[in-house]
Simulated assay, not measured.
Amino acid sequence: MIIERPSAARGTVKAGWLDSRHTFSFGHYHDPEWMGFGPLRVINEDRVAPGGGFPPHRHANMEILSYVLSGALSHKDSSSGGEGGVIHPGDLQWMSAGHGIEHSEFNASTTLPVHFLQIWLQPDRVNAAPAYAQRTFEPSDRRGRWALLASPDGDAGSIAIRQQAWLRGALLAAGEEVEFACEPSRRYWVHVARGTVTVDGRVLQAGDALGFVEEDGPHRLRDTGDDIADVLLFDLPV
């Protein structure tokens, strides 16, 4: 079964400095049909105005990934003694909230907006110690092919996360293709962060997504737009 999640059907939140699109139920947006996809609980596409951001707040027992598309995102959390860093395009940041953590996120610029994805996965263990990591993935490593960004064991330079899930990313120029194989015992979620692609002939634009449940065999993903497509593939337990 293939599940379609069009960008236009996502939840919308606008709050002056914030323009957000929610793939799954989150905050004031609640849809009982879209509570998550396996352990994948949140994909929020956020645009934060210069000087805007999320003040300190708490999370527990959630794997939180931040993926910047443009601009820069400043982050601080209590696991690093109040220190933090800045996330740029090409970076992936992981924060495991564990038994409880406080963090904040702000646009690092006073003049330019920041556009990023915040992704939550439920962990495969609870009440672990909070943890944090950040990696830079060179665009050349993802051009025309999948690169492993996150995995349970930190394989191939990826970030090790606390879930039996793999996150891959690809950057495709016009006409470039990649394939991914499905196993019926797993779930897969394809999210188009930027650009226009087809998946086995289905047209997907930025913000669109497909879920694969009990699917078998290979699927072909092709860039059919004029710009670079940025695509994320989640390989998830049922």
Rank of each mutant, 00 (worst) to 15 (best):
G217R: 00
A60L: 02
L210K: 10
D235H: 07
T23W: 01
A97S: 15
P56L: 06
Y67P: 12
V13C: 12
L221C: 11
V42P: 00
L40M: 15
P50R: 00
L167Y: 09
P113C: 11
C182N: 04
E83H: 13
S7Y: 08
A108S: 15
A160F: 00
Y67H: 13
W94R: 11
V199K: 01
A174C: 07
W34G: 00
F180K: 05
R135T: 07
L121K: 04
T111L: 11
Q118A: 15
F106R: 02
E138L: 14
Q118H: 12
I161T: 10
G157T: 06
W189G: 03
T136L: 14
I119H: 01
P130R: 04
M35V: 10
G84H: 08
Y188V: 06
A193H: 01
E4N: 04
M35Q: 14
G81R: 03
V48R: 00
Q122E: 14
G85D: 13
R145Q: 15
L73S: 10
I43C: 08
F116E: 11
H57I: 07
R143I: 08
E176R: 10
F234T: 01
D141P: 02
F26M: 03
G217M: 13
E176I: 03
G51E: 06
D31L: 10
G157W: 08
T12Y: 11
I87S: 15
V238I: 00
